[in-house]
Simulated scan of single mutants.
Amino acid sequence: MEEVVYESFEQLEAFMTLGFKAAGVPLDEAETCARVLIESDKRGIDSHGVGRFKPIYIDRINNGTLLTETDIEVIKETKTTAVLDGHDGLGHVIGVKAMSLAIDKATKYGLGMVAVRNSTHYGIAGYYALMAAKKNMICFTGTNARPSIAPTFGVESMLGTNPLTIGFPTDEAFPFVIDCATSISQRGKIEHYARIGKKMPNGWVVNQEGQAVRDPEKALSGLSNGTCALTPLGGIGEELGGYKGYGYATVVEVLSAALQSGMFLQKLSGVSESGAPQRYHLGHFFLAIDIKAFTETDDFKKITGDILRSLRASKKAEGEDRIYTAGEKEYLAYLERLETGVPLNKVVRESLVSVREAYQIDFEFSWEKKTCQNS
């Protein structure tokens, strides 16, 4: 088992803010980026939080594929819609701006939709769904990504993991938020299997012969060199509905690219023809719906809550003691981590320390203080 230590939300958010700022990001934008990232850790989604701070953001700033200052341009706008160009700035800053604009339009007119081109990785899509839910609005958002999913009956990486994320408020302590990729799994989960030396479940990854790959090391190598691809939700072929995940991934690709004349599919690889790193030019979309335009907000939240409670109270399979609804596990993780902090393995700790040393940031983590006290 991996050795982990725990760090508070506040400490990690403060350090990431300092790190982004040291890398050249303006303070207000650094705070936005850190706030989006820590939300992932708060919700127990370790694949998209502080663990990605260095490899996905700081490293990309250093290699020039992510700009430190975000220039957001309004390309086209109506009362209820807008198209923004992020000019390859910070995806978190662009995402918050776009979602806020969609919410503002929905507040005035009932519906607001914003499409974005030339953006970068915007963190967990669920962050933007939570923004809308806090305003008593329904949210649909999605983003395309570097190609990693093969289409049904195909073996070549074409589509990104392309999450289709939906959220809405309820009368419970937490909103309903479904935030997941349109692939069965993601690279981060495969990396976890590699770290613990365990074979992956059958059907997560397909090779050039169309066969399932269960060795995580071979899968990671193949995903890097193009000889393997992730499978869409439902898995290989059509027997378990792989065409459904493929179809939804395509929907997200179209709404993230065609709606705003953006880049798509293999143009999003982040690698030039010469093999050098290049900017990603990702696209996103954000739809906010004001519940008051359709019904009383409290009525909507009560009926929604009744639906979710009925689902959780339904008959359970033998050996199972609980049924969950979307957003519940994340809320429970949040309550637990309020007490314990965020678990950090050795790799993540070393990445944070390396950023601190590279930028000579004056900062001490809580786990370092405890180590000194115990020595």
Rank of each mutant, 00 (worst) to 15 (best):
V4G: 07
E7T: 09
F20N: 07
K21L: 10
P26V: 08
G44M: 06
R52H: 09
R60E: 13
L67P: 01
T68Y: 02
T68I: 05
E77N: 07
K79D: 15
T81R: 00
T81M: 00
D85L: 03
G86W: 07
G86P: 11
L90R: 03
K97A: 15
K105D: 00
K108Y: 04
T120F: 09
Y122H: 15
A133V: 01
N136A: 04
M137Q: 13
M137C: 06
T141V: 00
G142D: 01
N144S: 05
N144V: 02
N144K: 02
P147T: 03
P147L: 04
T152K: 03
G154H: 07
G154I: 09
N162D: 10
I166K: 01
F174N: 02
V177T: 09
I178S: 14
C180V: 08
A181H: 08
I184H: 00
R187M: 08
G188R: 11
E191I: 12
Y193F: 15
M200V: 11
W204M: 12
N207E: 01
A212Q: 04
V213D: 00
K218R: 12
A219L: 08
L223P: 06
N225W: 02
G226F: 01
T231N: 04
L233A: 11
A249L: 03
T250H: 11
V254G: 10
V254R: 10
A258I: 14
L268T: 11
G270M: 06
V271L: 08
S274R: 05
S274F: 03
G283M: 07
I289Q: 01
I289K: 00
R312G: 13
K315D: 13
D321P: 05
E328V: 09
L332Q: 12
L335A: 05
E336Y: 04
V342N: 10
K346C: 05
E368N: 12
K369E: 15
N374P: 03
